[in-house]
């Protein structure tokens, strides 16, 4: 009797494990099938490097270069803001802050992760957008820069908590040795602890960036959704993700436009796949 029970439980657990793999494979196959259909009529080169995204003109043009650049620009901006702040915050929490402040900070960062992106987007829309518009004297506050700021907030929780773990993983003996040699706290941090945690910090950065690349709602609300090649941080842009979210509803199923949106999905998939792989390599990197 118990043998049968054992057998059944074992199979159920096996099924649970397999099911995720099956789902991922199915999603991937579906994405490929729909996305690759576009390339029966549009050449890949024109798709990736085409400068015009006019999916419903006659004839339509499916160049996603402006969207790729939009995503890159917003991600770059978010990185420039969130990497120093996030890593600095992790160092402060792990090495400098007294215990009570540490606990408060960690609680707030977890809270930040819990705010839905649409709420952040909404807050950004009513506060950040007019501020950027007035402060820089721009025709519109819906710019890549605005999106970057909000995305930086979203990347931060992931970045801080993973970087913090990496800092904690540096052996206490290193710290002790540095102090015993008469190193100050800051010298110990930047000469011993940061080099020791370096690969973990890089992994934290990559995972934070991964979150930014895939983020949709807030960027859609804040970046202005203009599918033109941006000239500066203060231009409106449109990202890959926002394009799919915006146009999925209006694209006729089975049309070229519909397939093109899935092709964008493939591009996004490839980008996040590489970001995650890089993070993974850093994470399991052994000296």
């Amino acid at each position: 009797m118990s043998k049968i029970k054992e057998f059944i439980i074992e199979k159920i657990i096996f099924l649970c494990g397999i099911i995720t793999i099956v789902f991922i494979i199915l999603i991937f196959l579906f994405l490929l099938k729909e996305g690759l259909s576009l390339f029966k009529s549009v050449r890949i080169f024109e798709f990736i490097f085409g400068k015009n995204w006019y999916p419903i003109s006659e004839p339509p043009q499916f160049g996603i270069l402006p969207l790729i650049l939009g995503s890159l620009l917003v991600t770059l901006g978010a990185g420039i803001i969130s990497i120093p702040v996030g890593i600095g915050c992790a160092i402060f929490i792990a090495e400098v802050a007294p215990r009570w402040l540490k606990d408060i900070l960690k609680a707030f960062i977890e809270l930040l992760a819990a705010i839905p992106s649409v709420v952040l987007g909404f807050i950004g829309m009513v506060t950040l957008v007019p501020f950027v518009k007035n402060f820089f004297g721009l025709p519109t506050g819906l710019t890549a820069f605005t999106g970057s700021i909000m995305l930086a907030f979203m990347a931060m929780p992931t970045m801080v908590s993973i970087a913090e773990d990496a800092l904690y993983a540096v052996p206490y003996t290193y710290k002790e040795a540095a102090y015993a040699l008469g190193a100050s706290r800051w010298q110990t941090i930047y000469r011993v602890i940061i080099p020791g945690a370096f690969s973990g910090i890089l992994a934290a950065i990559m995972l934070g960036i991964g979150r930014v690349v895939g983020e949709t709602m807030a960027v859609m609300m804040l970046t202005g959704n203009s599918a033109r090649i941006p000239q500066s941080f203060f231009d409106p842009v449109r990202t890959l993700t926002a394009t799919i979210a915006n146009e999925m509803g209006e694209a006729v199923v089975g049309s070229q436009h519909y397939f093109a949106l899935f092709s964008i999905g493939i591009v996004l998939f490839i980008i996040s796949f590489f970001v995650n792989i890089t993070a993974d390599i850093f994470m399991h990197h052994k000296k």
Binding site: T173, Y174, A177, L181, S184, Q187, R191, K287
Partner: peptide
């Protein structure tokens, strides 16, 4: 101070000693 378990930093031999000078 010299500790119970040898605790060189995860740096090169040269940098381990240079550390004391750099600080």
């Amino acid at each position: 101070m010299v500790f119970q378990r040898p605790n060189p930093f995860a740096l090169s031999i040269f940098e381990n000693i240079a550390f004391s000078l750099r600080i």
